[in-house]
Amino acid sequence: MNSAYFSEEHELFRASFKDFLQKEVVPHIDKWEKTGTIERFIWKKFGDMGFLGLTYPETYGGLNLDLFYTVVFLEELQKIHSSGFAAAMWAHTYLAMTHLNAEGSEQIKRDYLAPSILGDKIGALCITEPFGGSDVAGMKTTAIKKGNSYIINGSKTFITNGVYADYYVVAAKTNVELGNKGISIFLVDTKCAGISATKLDKLGWRASDTAEIAFDNVEIPLENLMGEEGKGFPYIMQHFALERLIMAVNAHARAEYALEYTIDYMSKREAFGKTIDKFQALRHTLVNHATDVEHCKIFNYAAVSRLIKGEYVVKEATMAKLKSTKVADDTIYSCLQMLGGYGYMEDYPLARLFRDSRLGPIGGGTSEILREILSKMIIDNKDYQPAVK
């Protein structure tokens, strides 16, 4: 236990959640990895246990707990041999639902946030576009006001939960001439006419449903605008801090899991008359990685603590994701190597973990984009500011 951040209650929750995952999730993981579809019953079980509403207001069925319960949630999800399953859960809970809670109207919160907390509705956040990538301001999707409706046209891609979501949180331009100042955020129910979703085939995250989504004259009521028109870009940027911290925590947790698994394997694998954990080259390599992972973990915890206090930690969150995802990739690469040929076999967890981890430096802003954001802050003295409601 890191007593600076985790209380006894946090650790009791960790033990309970770990037990839940082993009993209710792990027996289905291999099937979901093969089919690419997470069955709906597990969402309801998560909802019934309160796991989808840890940090959300009690008014809508949440538990109103601090963000370190989320850290526990994320860390344990990385240790069940499916980053794809983990991604489906946290993308729903901390990407889509974050916008519902922060910008949604009271009606939207009642109709979509409350059922999301219960596991009755699944959400997806739709920002990235084909050929747009990290260029959020350059999006082409439009939402044009017509009478009492907005008409949405365009497409989104790499959307986690995109095929089986019940609703989308969609970023679209309400004024194409204003650039990033013309972006707004909308709630779009997937039952609306004119929506089509195509499942994408991926290197990793096989259990998660990732889609390309097309909007063809999709009509939604004016009331589905979330927050103020034209404020979508600062809303997105503000929530990116949480998303990047989530991905940083995911990274240090999966790297830690890889180290734990590999150390256990090495303590049992013999070569030349002794277990391979006695070979200095291997020992020192693992220690170097363990040091890097521990540095990332402590930095990530500190950034989460500052976010809880209401600080705008865009720089720290960006640094956390940039460093932690690189450290995770490097660590898992070495761990796979330590297993030799077995590391390359699908019967062992390192092959899947290696593939899954590679998304870390890409999703939520590529490492190249993050370096440029940090360059503007550190070298050019750019001061990013949170959205003002």
Rank of each mutant, 00 (worst) to 15 (best):
G341W: 13
G365S: 10
K326S: 03
V287D: 14
V304W: 15
S357F: 00
V293H: 03
K278G: 01
I362M: 14
A302V: 13
Y342M: 15
R371W: 09
L339M: 07
R306I: 00
I308T: 09
I332M: 00
I373S: 07
M345E: 09
L370M: 14
V304P: 02
A281E: 10
T285E: 12
L339S: 00
K326E: 06
N288G: 08
G360F: 00
C296S: 07
Y348F: 14
Y344D: 08
T291L: 11
I362V: 15
A302K: 15
Q337P: 05
L286V: 12
Q337N: 11
S334E: 06
M319I: 12
C335A: 09
T291R: 12
S367G: 14
E372M: 12
T331G: 05
A303M: 02
I369D: 04
I373A: 11
K315H: 11
R306Y: 01
A290H: 08
I332C: 02
V313E: 03
E346Y: 00
Y333N: 05
I362K: 13
Y301G: 01
H295N: 14
G363D: 06
T318V: 13
A302E: 15
L353V: 08
R355P: 00
A351N: 10
H284L: 15
A351Y: 04
L374C: 13
A290Q: 13
T331V: 11
Y344E: 10
M338E: 04
K323I: 15
D356H: 04
V314A: 11
V313S: 04
A317T: 06
S324Y: 06
S324F: 03
L307N: 06
E368N: 12
G343A: 02
S334M: 05
Y312P: 04
D347Y: 01
F279Y: 15
E316Y: 07
P349N: 04
D329T: 14
F279E: 07
L353I: 09
R371N: 12
K278L: 10
I332T: 00
E346H: 00
V304T: 10
Y333T: 12
S367F: 06
N288A: 12
K297F: 07
